[in-house]
């Protein structure tokens, strides 16, 4: 029964996609079946796989950097209340502005290629991880720290046994949001300043109006994002349910 609702949702989405295809026709999009067939062909093409690996490599680097930097910034700002209060509006403003506006600066600094893609993905992903981490540390229930003091916990034991478990649910939520944004950032980086990767292929297909290719690459990305997000959401919900927050 656990799988019934997601399966039903997938069937409904496929039906909507098919209906939209009937309504809009080949010019606007390709059918679900044709898209899946095209994706299978592409995955079997040895020239396509390096593009997938390029994107995957750029994204993983960006994601890891976003998480590490986000955690470092979030911990620093969460631990020092005044710095956090000064930095929070700046971070929120950075979170709100379209990061594409920063792209020319990134290109000037890193040039066209992998470093620019990684930098763009990192910039997109780092802010939610930092914001959620900062708030998680700020919101640790003071009575937990008082309990740790009563037990005379060492700093290491306090971090390991109180701070980390107390902040983990909120940090995982930040990582989940950061994951989606780092993926978007990496692809945007590839679309506007790269010669390899799925974003580059997407841009190329768009300029040639190759609808089956656009749809096949998009489907691959959606599948990847959906699978990882489902896994992260599962961890997120498990942690929150345990702490009674959901």
């Amino acid at each position: 029964m656990k799988w019934r609702d997601p399966l039903l949702l997938i069937v409904v989405l496929l039906l909507l996609w098919q209906a939209l295809y009937f309504f809009a026709g080949d010019i606007a999009l390709s059918s679900p079946l044709a898209t899946m067939r095209r994706l299978a062909q592409m995955l079997g093409d040895p020239r396509f796989v390096p593009h997938v690996l390029e994107t995957l490599s750029a994204f993983l680097q960006a994601f890891v950097l976003a998480v590490l930097l986000g955690l470092a910034i979030g911990i620093a700002l969460g631990a020092h209340r005044l710095t956090g209060e000064v930095a929070e509006p700046i971070l929120v403003a950075l979170y709100s502005i379209p990061k594409v506006t920063l792209y020319p600066i990134i290109l000037l600094i890193f040039g066209i290629g992998m470093p620019a893609k990684v930098a763009f993905g990192t910039i997109q992903g780092v802010v939610p991880v930092a914001l959620f981490t900062m708030n998680a540390i700020r919101n640790v229930n003071p009575v937990f720290n008082r309990t740790a003091r009563v037990q005379n916990l060492s700093s290491i034991a306090w971090v390991r046994d109180v701070l980390v478990p107390a902040t983990l649910p909120e940090i995982v939520t930040g990582i989940r949001v950061g994951f989606s944004l780092a993926l978007i950032g990496t692809l945007l980086g590839e679309m506007f300043g790269a010669q390899r990767g799925l974003g580059f292929l997407l841009m190329q297909a768009m300029s040639l109006h190759n609808m089956p290719n656009i749809m096949a690459v998009t489907l691959l990305l959606v599948l990847f994002a959906a699978i990882v997000n489902t896994a992260l959401l599962g961890i997120d919900r498990r942690l929150r349910r345990r702490s009674g927050a959901a």
Binding site: N141, V143, F144, R146, T147, V150, P165, A166, L168, R242
Partner: peptide, 15 residues
């Protein structure tokens, strides 16, 4: 040798 019980719920939700 000193134990403290607080007014607030100090049970750790993750344990």
């Amino acid at each position: 040798g000193v134990g403290v019980v607080f007014q607030e719920d100090a049970s750790f939700p993750w344990l």
